[in-house]
Amino acid sequence: MIQLDKVTKQFNTANGTLTAVDNVSLSINDGEIYGIIGYSGAGKSTMIRLFNGLEKPTSGSIIVNGANITEIKGAKLRAARHKVSMVFQHFNLLWSRTVEENIAFTLEVAGVKKEQRQVKVAELIELVGLQGREKSYPSQLSGGQKQRVGIARALANEPEVLLCDEATSALDPETTDAILDLLVSINERLNITIILITHEMHVIRKICNRVAVMEEGKIVEEGDVLQVFESPKAAVTQKFVQQVIETSGQKESIKQMQEQFPDGKLIKLFFVGTATERPVITQLIRKFNVEVNIIDGNISPTKSGAYGTLIVQINGVDDDVEKAVNYLAAQGIKSEVISHD
Rank of each mutant, 00 (worst) to 15 (best):
I37T: 01
T8D: 10
G35A: 10
L266F: 11
L226Q: 10
E336I: 13
V64K: 09
E115D: 15
Y34P: 10
A306S: 12
P279H: 11
V272K: 05
K113H: 11
N326E: 14
V84F: 02
V312E: 04
L310R: 12
F51M: 11
Q227I: 06
D320Y: 03
A212D: 05
T98L: 12
V161M: 07
C208H: 06
I103L: 09
R133Q: 15
A20G: 15
L310Q: 11
T282Q: 12
V21T: 15
H82L: 13
G273Y: 07
A20H: 05
G273Q: 13
E71D: 08
D30E: 11
S59V: 04
S300A: 07
A156I: 07
S304Y: 00
G150C: 04
E252L: 10
A212N: 03
F91W: 06
V236S: 06
V317F: 10
I333D: 08
D5E: 12
Q250M: 13
K255W: 07
N157V: 05
I254W: 05
D165I: 02
G35S: 04
G144H: 08
I69C: 04
N68A: 03
D341T: 05
E158V: 01
S169W: 02
E216F: 08
Q89R: 03
T282A: 15
K233V: 15
H202L: 03
Y39E: 11
N92M: 10
I254A: 03
Q147L: 07
